[in-house]
Amino acid sequence: MALPHSADLRLLVFDLDGTLIDSRQDLCNSVNATLDHLGKPHLPDAVIASYIGDGASMLVRRALGDPEGDIHDEEYLQNALTFFLDYYRIHKLDFTYAYDGVLQSLEAIRAAQPHLKMAVLTNKPVNPSRDICRALGLEPFFFQNYGGNSFHSKKPDPHGLQTLMQEASASPGQTVMIGDSIVDILTAQNAGAWSLGCTFGLSSVTLAMDVPSLTCDSPQDWATLFA
Rank of each mutant, 00 (worst) to 15 (best):
L3M: 11
V13P: 05
V13R: 07
D17A: 04
G18Y: 13
L20Q: 06
R24N: 07
Q25H: 14
V31T: 13
A33K: 11
A33D: 09
T34F: 06
H37R: 15
L38R: 12
P41G: 13
P44W: 12
D45P: 11
I48W: 09
A49K: 15
A49H: 02
S50D: 14
I52S: 11
S57M: 02
V60P: 06
A63N: 08
P67Y: 04
I71G: 01
D73L: 13
E74W: 10
E75Y: 02
L77K: 03
L81W: 02
L85R: 12
R89I: 03
K92W: 01
L93I: 10
F95Q: 11
D100Y: 12
S105V: 03
L106W: 12
A108Y: 08
R110Y: 11
A112C: 10
H115L: 10
L116C: 04
M118Y: 09
A119T: 08
N123L: 00
K124V: 02
P125V: 05
V126S: 11
V126W: 01
P128L: 08
P128I: 11
S129P: 06
S129G: 15
I132R: 00
L136K: 03
N145H: 05
Y146S: 07
G147H: 14
G148K: 12
S150G: 10
S150M: 06
S150R: 11
F151G: 14
K155T: 10
D157Q: 09
P158Q: 13
P158G: 13
Q162D: 01
L164G: 04
E167D: 14
S169K: 10
A170I: 03
A170C: 06
P172T: 06
M177T: 05
M177S: 05
M177G: 03
M177E: 02
D184C: 04
D184T: 02
I185M: 09
L186W: 10
Q189E: 13
A193W: 12
W194S: 02
W194I: 00
L196I: 11
C198H: 13
T199V: 12
S203D: 00
S203C: 09
S204H: 15
V205R: 15
T206N: 09
T206R: 12
L207P: 00
D210L: 00
D210S: 01
S213R: 09
T224E: 10
L225W: 02
L225T: 02
F226K: 08
A227E: 01
A227H: 04
A227N: 05
